[in-house]
Write a protein that binds this DNA or RNA. Structure first.
Lengths: 116, 116
DNA sequence: TATCCATACCTAGAACTGCTAGGCATTGTA
DNA sequence: TACAATGCCTAGCAGTTCTAGGTATGGATA
């Protein structure tokens, strides 16, 4: 049930940026959210996520700061920037272009998008 | 308008296998078909396609043979195998799973699938 | 109070890979 | 006869990824 490596790579950035549009978050919580959203199909290790978050920060797509949560834990919170939102829109555009191309070959394609 | 490298990588195998479900084909024609299907958004070089076709053959997902076309050109034709069809189904399943995950974050998502 | 699990983060560098940039040959056409 | 289009191939470099390791702390349990 492992998702193909290339597909994981292709979806990583849009997925993280999308999660951050829901509101700021931090590494550990993002991992759990990904697992939850995909119903367990996408199961990243933290070693995959943190370098990605660092890269997004280097590219100016997110801001970050250390804060202490109400529970007393130190966490590095991330928030999406305007540039991040633009990058996400472009990713989405590309994802739709490719899905449309594949959809043209796959015939009537629902992709499970019709649900509630 | 360049499509992200990772997204190209993720779509490469399902795209080629899908094209071969339309009937056997050969490298040069597959390249043109990809350009056509994507409206020019996906623009592979031949140096990207041939190694992929070789890999698909090595994996038993396609068969291949040299033939001379009616026009007198020598071409290496490729045809999808049963294993290839199974692999394609699995790719499609994964693509849909990831698209569904992203779709859950993107809200109502048409992906241009509603067409004529 | 010792131990274990969950939470929370970080990175070096081995291992892998993809594609650029080159090559070759043939047919049609200006 | 020269150029464009058709048609195929691959070495190896340049680039990246993620595994495997590390650290630390809060809360629960025994």
């Amino acid at each position: 049930m492992d998702i193909d490596k290339d597909l994981v790579a292709a979806s990583a950035t849009p997925l993280v940026l999308s999660i951050l549009t829901e509101g700021e978050s931090y590494g550990y919580a993002i991992l759990k959210r990904i697992r939850e959203l995909s119903g367990g199909e996408l199961d990243w290790t933290d070693g995959m996520l943190y370098p990605l978050l660092h890269r997004l920060h280097r590219l100016g797509l997110v801001t970050t700061e250390w804060r202490t949560s109400p529970e007393g834990r130190r966490r590095r919170y991330y928030a999406i920037t305007d540039a991040g939102r633009e990058a996400l829109a472009e990713h989405r555009r590309q994802w739709e272009a490719v899905t449309r191309t594949l959809g043209g070959l796959w015939g009537a394609l629902t992709l499970g998008m019709e649900g509630p």
